[in-house]
Design a binder for these strands. Structure first.
Length: 267
DNA sequence: AGCCAGGAGATTT
DNA sequence: AAATCTCATGGC
């Protein structure tokens, strides 16, 4: 990502396309298709644009969020610092789940390096102008691996078990984004996710917010959120869950966005 | 050097 | 049910 431009390898219907998105005049996004794997039909092109709209949450009307946030002591500064920021999603369910499990209880830098090794060890890349672009490993591929295979990249046994279990559930068709989308009730989807081994309240809400796109999803016990609140309010300790509940009482329906904006705060 | 990290499950009280 | 222990590597 070079400030106002990003290149991403997008997979749709097992077709890989290298897409470049850039900002034009602060107001428009220009989408260009790179490499040889350009979309051939109008339908394919429109599907890619739809994917990008979902990924960057472009169709969300943030008016009421900003109206609320400008009055909120915790949010008013961050919404001024990052105007227009949208909740960047992780459209692929397996990727969202893996990313969440990888990030459980380890520092972010280690999580990033683990994810990088995970992707580079278990998936292919394409090269464009001397740079490699990676797709995320598929659950079919992971379902055939073992804890020992994952130990090579310093994944702990527990994380490996969780990810392999999830890969198996998805391979068997027991778990899919489509199935979760059919359940309309937020609490019901959350319960369904938490029933899976390795997925607790934090992971479930992380996925609800970044993949299933529920703006009311709220990973309340998130350490990054706690530290951001601590920093914003100049506290000498991390806030308790009760304090966070109280501070977030005005966020109703926008908890995911509030969390995402606070994640941008570096402390 | 020691604490803790964008937690979850198992065990104990 | 609620508190406590275990996993376990690496960053600071």
């Amino acid at each position: 990502m070079i400030d106002d431009q990003i290149i991403k390898l997008i997979e749709l219907e097992s077709l890989f396309t290298l897409v470049q998105i850039s900002v034009l005049k602060d107001d428009y996004l220009v989408v260009e298709f790179l490499s040889d794997s350009r979309p051939k039909t109008r339908v394919e092109k429109e599907a890619l644009v739809a994917y990008i709209c979902e990924w960057l949450d472009l169709n969300r009307d943030l008016t009421s969020f900003y109206k609320m946030a400008r009055q909120d002591p915790l949010l008013k500064e961050v919404v001024e610092r990052f105007p227009g920021l949208r909740l960047v999603g992780v459209p692929d369910l397996f990727e969202a789940l893996c990313w969440a499990v990888l990030g459980q209880q380890i520092n972010l830098n280690f999580a990033y390096s683990l994810k990088r090794k995970f992707v580079e060890s278990f998936e292919e890349s394409i090269t464009y102008k001397g740079r490699k672009y990676w797709a995320f490993p598929s659950y079919e591929k992971l379902a055939n691996l073992s804890v020992e295979d994952l130990a090579v990249i310093k994944m702990t046994g527990r994380k490996s078990e969780y990810i392999l279990g999830i890969a198996k559930l998805m391979s068997e068709g027991e778990l899919s984004k489509e199935k979760l989308q059919q359940i309309k009730d937020f609490n019901h989807v959350e319960k369904e996710l938490i029933s899976i081994r390795g997925i607790g309240p934090w992971t479930a809400n992380y996925v609800l917010m970044r993949c299933l796109r529920y703006p009311e999803a709220f990973p309340i016990a998130d350490v990054g959120l706690m530290n951001a609140i601590k920093y914003q309010l100049r506290m000498d300790r991390k806030p308790s869950s009760e304090e966070i509940l109280k501070l977030s009482s005005g966020w109703t329906g926008w908890e995911a966005y509030a969390t995402f904006y606070l994640w941008r705060v570096r402390y």
